[in-house]
Simulated assay, not measured.
Amino acid sequence: MERSNHTVTEFILLGFTTDPVMQLVLFVLFLGVYSLTLVGNSTLIVLICNDSRLHTPMYFFIGNLSFLDLWYSSVYTPKILMTCISEDKSISFAGCLCQFFFSAGLAYSECYLLAAMAYDRYVAISNPLLYAQAMPTRLCICFVIYSYTGGFVNALILTSNTFTLDFCGDDVIDDFFCDVPPLVKLACDVERSYQAVLYFLLASNVICPATLILAFYLFIIAAVLRIRSSRGCRKAFSTCSSHLISVTLYYGSILYIYSCPSSSYSLERDKMVSTFYTLLFPMLNPMIYSLRNKDVKAALRKLFTLAQSEV
């Protein structure tokens, strides 16, 4: 028996487990991860805003990435925490739609922003003497605006196409958030036009930025190879290492999930990967960009010194 999605009023999010003890363990774990995400990204934003040494294009992009991660994690985590401790696992149709839209918009925006950061690293390494002129503030702001605009416009296309599907039978999402694969599993019939939209969005929002990043890193490698001193080579690579780690982790998990969103959907496997890029990645980013960064460490020490002196 088919029914159109206009009759759907809510979905049921099964989450990770039905075991009450494990649900409590997961609640504590996810609460800890979310707390670290909030503290880490907020601290990085405050440092970048307050320390003049961090007023450069690279840190401008890192600050925006932290802002994205704060917002991105907050789209998922509060509902996940409620699902862990509450017997009510439902999410309204409108709530599911909003979660879906914002998660897609932020994910796509992050893809574009990581590509802009790769271009920034290419300019910094290939032409360091003219770096400030080649990456003016106006251009950096334009990159960020384009990232958000492109991300949310494409998210609007994805959301409007997904939530006009006809959903059949039980409205049970065997996952912890509203995402493409579990929603497609609930659809009565997925037309080829919808599959075409998914592949178009995958290509334009994930594969194209990933290809640009790969191209910029090939140019970076070529520029580094022209550096004669080994110290200069190490310094050049160290400026890219954090970004490269971030790109590898983020794009790897995204491509793994969305390359074949319907036919190859494996529930338990994809839940684990989804957990990484929705919960763990936003927590890891501040660590990736600060642990090996002398400027951030110096700014953090300065902030602690000022705080202690005021006390």
Rank of each mutant, 00 (worst) to 15 (best):
N64P: 09
F101C: 06
A307I: 08
V39I: 08
V273A: 01
I48P: 00
V172F: 09
P282Q: 04
S35W: 11
D175P: 03
Y199V: 06
F167Y: 10
C98Y: 15
V273G: 00
R228L: 12
L303N: 04
L130E: 12
E110F: 09
A222Y: 06
L106K: 02
L306A: 13
S204N: 09
C49R: 11
F93Y: 15
P286Y: 03
C208K: 15
H6G: 00
L255N: 04
T137C: 13
T248K: 06
I257V: 09
L44K: 01
A134V: 08
G32L: 06
S253M: 05
G252Y: 04
V190W: 07
N5V: 12
C111G: 02
R228A: 09
A107P: 02
K79I: 13
Y76K: 01
A124R: 02
I141S: 12
D69K: 02
P20M: 08
R3T: 11
E191T: 13
K294R: 15
F143L: 10
S309E: 09
S66V: 02
S229Q: 07
M117Q: 08
S259P: 07
L81V: 08
F219Q: 10
P128H: 02
N293T: 08
V123I: 03
S242E: 02
M283G: 02
L280E: 02
L244S: 05
A203L: 15
R226A: 03
N205Q: 09
I245H: 04
T77R: 00
E10M: 04
T149F: 13
A118D: 03
L214N: 06
I220T: 00
N161E: 10
C178S: 08
S86E: 01
R234E: 07
